[in-house]
């Protein structure tokens, strides 16, 4: 899995690609935590190129959501498809995260999204 970081205005976007599993999720966690503490008002995770995510990857996203409350960072996901979308729905977490269809929608709506999720 690769994670690339970029900025769109003042929003930090993490472009993830590949499989997020027990081996790779620590890398996503480290990057997510670092960016969450870096003071960006919003962090978005681009899941469009994630073909697989397991429970350790989902735990990382939940941890990011919890940290977003502490750091007062708006946090959302976009581009979910296939396995990633279905497992989030199966675990009923699609109602907990701010999830957007694509990047334009995410950038448009993240600033008006309830900032810290439902945890």
């Amino acid at each position: 899995m690769k994670v690339q970081i970029r900025k769109a205005n003042d929003v930090t976007i993490l472009d993830c690609s590949g499989d997020v599993d027990l081996y790779s999720s620590p890398h996503l966690r480290e990057t997510l935590m670092k960016e969450m503490h870096a003071g960006s008002p919003a962090v978005l995770v681009n899941m469009a190129e994630v073909g697989y995510i397991d429970s350790s990857g989902i735990a990382t996203l939940v941890e990011g959501l919890q940290l977003s409350r502490q750091t007062k960072t708006r946090f959302g996901l976009f581009g979910l498809k296939g396995n990633a979308r279905s497992v989030l729905e199966l675990a009923r977490l699609h109602k907990v995260f701010a999830i957007f269809n694509d990047e334009p929608e995410a950038l448009e709506k993240i600033s008006s999204t309830e900032p810290f999720g439902g945890l």
């Binding site: 429970s55 350790s56 989902i58 735990a59 939940v62 919890q66 199966l90 675990a91």
Partner: peptide, 17 residues
């Protein structure tokens, strides 16, 4: 339980699903 939203604890849920 799924309503207990926290990091971890979903692996067994997915297996059984």
């Amino acid at each position: 339980p799924l309503e207990d939203v926290r990091p971890g604890g979903l692996g067994t849920f997915f297996i059984k699903s």
